[in-house]
Protein backbone atom coordinates (compact mmCIF):
# COMPACT_ATOMS: atom_id res chain seq x y z
CA UNK A 1 0.00 0.00 0.00
CA UNK A 2 1.42 3.35 -0.96
CA UNK A 3 0.98 6.27 1.35
CA UNK A 4 2.02 9.90 1.49
CA UNK A 5 5.41 10.67 3.02
CA UNK A 6 7.07 13.97 3.84
CA UNK A 7 10.69 14.57 2.86
CA UNK A 8 12.92 17.61 2.59
CA UNK A 9 15.24 18.36 -0.33
CA UNK A 10 17.74 21.15 0.45
CA UNK A 11 15.45 22.26 3.26
CA UNK A 12 12.36 22.42 1.03
CA UNK A 13 9.50 20.25 2.28
CA UNK A 14 8.11 17.95 -0.39
CA UNK A 15 5.16 15.58 -0.35
CA UNK A 16 5.71 12.26 -2.06
CA UNK A 17 4.14 8.86 -2.45
CA UNK A 18 6.10 6.08 -0.75
CA UNK A 19 7.97 4.01 -3.30
CA UNK A 20 8.61 6.99 -5.60
CA UNK A 21 12.26 7.53 -6.46
CA UNK A 22 13.97 10.63 -5.08
CA UNK A 23 14.73 11.88 -8.59
CA UNK A 24 11.02 11.90 -9.56
CA UNK A 25 9.93 13.63 -6.37
CA UNK A 26 12.59 16.29 -6.91
CA UNK A 27 11.42 16.80 -10.49
CA UNK A 28 7.79 17.20 -9.40
CA UNK A 29 8.93 19.86 -6.96
CA UNK A 30 10.97 21.81 -9.49
CA UNK A 31 14.34 20.64 -8.17
CA UNK A 32 16.87 19.42 -10.72
CA UNK A 33 19.09 16.48 -9.88
CA UNK A 34 21.44 15.70 -12.78
CA UNK A 35 21.11 12.30 -14.48
CA UNK A 36 22.91 10.45 -17.25
CA UNK A 37 22.04 6.76 -17.11
CA UNK A 38 18.48 7.40 -15.97
CA UNK A 39 15.80 7.72 -18.63
CA UNK A 40 12.07 8.34 -18.18
CA UNK A 41 10.07 5.16 -18.58
CA UNK A 42 13.09 2.89 -18.27
CA UNK A 43 13.92 0.90 -15.14
CA UNK A 44 16.61 2.84 -13.23
CA UNK A 45 20.08 1.37 -13.04
CA UNK A 46 22.20 3.68 -10.91
CA UNK A 47 25.31 3.07 -12.97
CA UNK A 48 26.61 6.57 -13.66
CA UNK A 49 26.34 7.92 -10.05
CA UNK A 50 25.91 11.48 -11.29
CA UNK A 51 22.60 11.79 -9.38
CA UNK A 52 24.31 11.09 -6.05
CA UNK A 53 22.68 12.99 -3.18
CA UNK A 54 23.15 12.80 0.55
CA UNK A 55 20.25 11.02 2.23
CA UNK A 56 20.40 11.68 5.97
CA UNK A 57 24.14 12.20 5.54
CA UNK A 58 24.82 9.13 3.38
CA UNK A 59 25.66 9.21 -0.32
CA UNK A 60 22.92 7.51 -2.34
CA UNK A 61 21.86 7.55 -5.99
CA UNK A 62 18.65 9.53 -6.36
CA UNK A 63 17.46 7.49 -9.34
CA UNK A 64 17.36 4.16 -7.47
CA UNK A 65 16.53 5.21 -3.91
CA UNK A 66 12.82 5.24 -3.02
CA UNK A 67 11.65 7.94 -0.62
CA UNK A 68 10.66 7.20 2.95
CA UNK A 69 9.24 9.28 5.78
CA UNK A 70 11.38 12.18 7.06
CA UNK A 71 14.23 11.71 4.60
CA UNK A 72 16.52 14.72 4.56
CA UNK A 73 18.10 15.05 1.14
CA UNK A 74 21.06 17.24 0.32
CA UNK A 75 21.41 18.03 -3.38
CA UNK A 76 23.59 21.15 -3.38
CA UNK A 77 26.31 20.98 -0.73
CA UNK A 78 29.91 21.49 -1.79
CA UNK A 79 31.07 17.89 -1.65
CA UNK A 80 28.08 16.67 -3.70
CA UNK A 81 28.78 19.23 -6.41
CA UNK A 82 32.49 18.37 -6.31
CA UNK A 83 31.73 14.65 -6.61
CA UNK A 84 29.48 15.22 -9.62
CA UNK A 85 32.08 17.41 -11.26
CA UNK A 86 34.71 14.72 -10.76
CA UNK A 87 32.42 12.09 -12.32
CA UNK A 88 31.85 14.31 -15.38
CA UNK A 89 35.59 14.92 -15.73
CA UNK A 90 36.34 11.20 -15.38
CA UNK A 91 33.82 10.39 -18.11
CA UNK A 92 35.54 12.90 -20.38
CA UNK A 93 39.04 11.50 -19.87
CA UNK A 94 37.94 7.87 -19.93
CA UNK A 95 36.73 8.03 -23.56
CA UNK A 96 37.60 10.10 -26.61
CA UNK A 97 35.12 12.95 -26.35
CA UNK A 98 36.12 15.35 -29.08
CA UNK A 99 33.07 17.64 -29.11
CA UNK A 100 33.84 19.70 -32.25
CA UNK A 101 33.67 16.56 -34.43
CA UNK A 102 30.60 15.03 -32.81
CA UNK A 103 27.15 15.14 -34.43
CA UNK A 104 25.53 15.12 -31.00
CA UNK A 105 27.38 18.25 -29.83
CA UNK A 106 24.84 20.76 -28.52
CA UNK A 107 22.34 17.98 -27.83
CA UNK A 108 24.69 15.85 -25.72
CA UNK A 109 23.78 15.36 -22.08
CA UNK A 110 27.35 14.74 -20.96
CA UNK A 111 28.51 17.96 -22.63
CA UNK A 112 25.50 19.82 -21.19
CA UNK A 113 26.41 18.64 -17.69
CA UNK A 114 29.99 19.79 -18.22
CA UNK A 115 28.60 23.20 -19.16
CA UNK A 116 26.29 23.26 -16.16
CA UNK A 117 29.13 22.38 -13.81
CA UNK A 118 31.51 24.86 -15.55
CA UNK A 119 34.12 22.30 -16.58
CA UNK A 120 36.92 24.08 -18.43
CA UNK A 121 39.30 21.14 -18.50
CA UNK A 122 39.26 17.76 -16.74
CA UNK A 123 41.68 17.68 -13.79
CA UNK A 124 42.71 14.10 -14.68
CA UNK A 125 45.09 13.13 -17.52
CA UNK A 126 43.43 12.02 -20.75
CA UNK A 127 43.67 8.28 -21.35
CA UNK A 128 43.08 8.30 -25.15
CA UNK A 129 41.79 4.72 -25.21
CA UNK A 130 41.82 2.82 -28.48
CA UNK A 131 38.21 2.21 -29.46
CA UNK A 132 36.37 1.14 -32.58
CA UNK A 133 33.71 2.75 -34.73
CA UNK A 134 31.28 0.14 -36.03
CA UNK A 135 29.22 1.05 -39.09
CA UNK A 136 28.08 -2.46 -40.03
CA UNK A 137 24.46 -1.89 -39.15
CA UNK A 138 22.47 -0.47 -42.10
CA UNK A 139 20.77 2.20 -39.97
CA UNK A 140 23.09 3.02 -37.06
CA UNK A 141 26.72 3.94 -36.49
CA UNK A 142 28.11 2.86 -33.14
CA UNK A 143 31.06 4.96 -31.95
CA UNK A 144 32.65 3.27 -28.97
CA UNK A 145 34.91 6.30 -28.40
CA UNK A 146 31.96 8.24 -27.02
CA UNK A 147 30.08 5.51 -25.16
CA UNK A 148 29.78 6.08 -21.41
CA UNK A 149 28.31 2.61 -20.74
CA UNK A 150 25.09 3.93 -19.23
CA UNK A 151 23.12 0.94 -20.55
CA UNK A 152 20.24 3.17 -21.64
CA UNK A 153 20.12 1.55 -25.09
CA UNK A 154 20.19 -1.95 -23.61
CA UNK A 155 17.31 -1.13 -21.31
CA UNK A 156 15.17 1.00 -23.61
CA UNK A 157 15.46 -0.47 -27.11
CA UNK A 158 13.55 -3.68 -27.79
CA UNK A 159 12.17 -5.24 -30.95
CA UNK A 160 8.49 -6.06 -31.51
CA UNK A 161 8.89 -9.32 -29.55
CA UNK A 162 10.38 -7.53 -26.56
CA UNK A 163 13.95 -8.75 -27.18
CA UNK A 164 16.78 -6.37 -26.35
CA UNK A 165 18.73 -5.31 -29.43
CA UNK A 166 21.77 -4.04 -27.56
CA UNK A 167 23.93 -5.86 -25.02
CA UNK A 168 27.24 -5.64 -23.23
CA UNK A 169 30.10 -7.81 -24.34
CA UNK A 170 33.65 -8.31 -23.00
CA UNK A 171 34.55 -7.56 -19.38
CA UNK A 172 36.13 -4.98 -17.09
CA UNK A 173 37.70 -2.00 -18.83
CA UNK A 174 37.15 -3.69 -22.21
CA UNK A 175 33.38 -3.83 -21.86
CA UNK A 176 31.44 -2.35 -24.74
CA UNK A 177 27.99 -2.13 -26.24
CA UNK A 178 27.20 -4.49 -29.07
CA UNK A 179 24.27 -4.55 -31.42
CA UNK A 180 22.64 -7.88 -32.21
CA UNK A 181 23.55 -8.32 -35.90
CA UNK A 182 20.50 -10.46 -36.72
CA UNK A 183 17.79 -8.39 -35.03
CA UNK A 184 19.70 -5.20 -35.81
CA UNK A 185 19.60 -5.90 -39.54
CA UNK A 186 15.87 -5.23 -39.68
CA UNK A 187 15.94 -2.19 -37.41
CA UNK A 188 13.12 0.20 -38.32
CA UNK A 189 13.82 3.89 -38.92
CA UNK A 190 11.78 4.79 -35.84
CA UNK A 191 13.69 2.41 -33.60
CA UNK A 192 17.04 3.62 -34.96
CA UNK A 193 16.01 7.21 -34.24
CA UNK A 194 14.81 6.18 -30.77
CA UNK A 195 18.19 4.55 -30.09
CA UNK A 196 19.97 7.76 -31.07
CA UNK A 197 17.62 9.84 -28.92
CA UNK A 198 18.00 7.50 -25.94
CA UNK A 199 21.82 7.71 -26.09
CA UNK A 200 22.92 10.59 -23.83
CA UNK A 201 26.10 11.07 -25.87
CA UNK A 202 26.96 10.60 -29.55
CA UNK A 203 27.73 6.88 -29.40
CA UNK A 204 24.68 5.85 -31.44
CA UNK A 205 23.98 7.89 -34.56
CA UNK A 206 21.44 7.44 -37.30
CA UNK A 207 23.23 7.06 -40.61
CA UNK A 208 23.03 9.44 -43.54
CA UNK A 209 22.15 12.52 -41.56
CA UNK A 210 23.81 14.80 -39.07
CA UNK A 211 24.47 18.39 -38.13
CA UNK A 212 20.91 19.25 -39.22
CA UNK A 213 20.39 21.78 -36.43
CA UNK A 214 22.43 24.98 -36.71
CA UNK A 215 24.66 26.07 -33.83
CA UNK A 216 22.62 28.29 -31.57
CA UNK A 217 19.40 26.31 -32.02
CA UNK A 218 20.42 23.05 -30.40
CA UNK A 219 18.95 21.77 -27.18
CA UNK A 220 21.62 23.02 -24.78
CA UNK A 221 22.94 26.04 -26.71
CA UNK A 222 20.98 28.68 -24.82
CA UNK A 223 19.94 27.19 -21.50
CA UNK A 224 21.65 24.78 -19.13
CA UNK A 225 20.39 21.23 -18.81
CA UNK A 226 17.73 21.05 -16.09
CA UNK A 227 16.40 24.59 -16.64
CA UNK A 228 13.06 23.15 -17.78
CA UNK A 229 12.64 21.38 -14.44
CA UNK A 230 13.74 24.39 -12.39
CA UNK A 231 11.23 26.62 -14.21
CA UNK A 232 8.25 24.55 -13.06
Amino acid sequence: MSHVVKITIDGVECMATSGQYIIDVAKENGIYIPTLCNYPGVKPKGSCRICTVKVNGRMMTACTTPVSENMEIDNTSGDIVELRKAIIELLFIEGNHFCPACEKSGNCELQALAYRYSMMVPRFPYTFPQRQVDAQNPKLVKDQNRCILCKRCIRAIHDADGRAIFAYHKRGNKVEICLDPKIGKNLSDELAQKAMDVCPVGALLVKEKGFDQPIGERKYDKEPIGSDIEKL
Binding site: N96, F98, P100, A101, M120, F128, Q130, R131
Partner: peptide
Protein backbone atom coordinates in the same frame (compact mmCIF):
# COMPACT_ATOMS: atom_id res chain seq x y z
CA UNK B 1 43.16 21.58 -23.94
CA UNK B 2 42.77 17.98 -25.12
CA UNK B 3 44.76 17.53 -28.33
CA UNK B 4 41.74 18.09 -30.51
CA UNK B 5 41.58 16.93 -34.11
CA UNK B 6 45.30 15.98 -34.32
CA UNK B 7 44.78 13.77 -31.26
CA UNK B 8 42.53 11.52 -33.31
CA UNK B 9 45.75 9.76 -34.27
CA UNK B 10 46.42 8.91 -30.63
CA UNK B 11 44.93 5.44 -30.92
Amino acid sequence: IMGGLPAMRNG
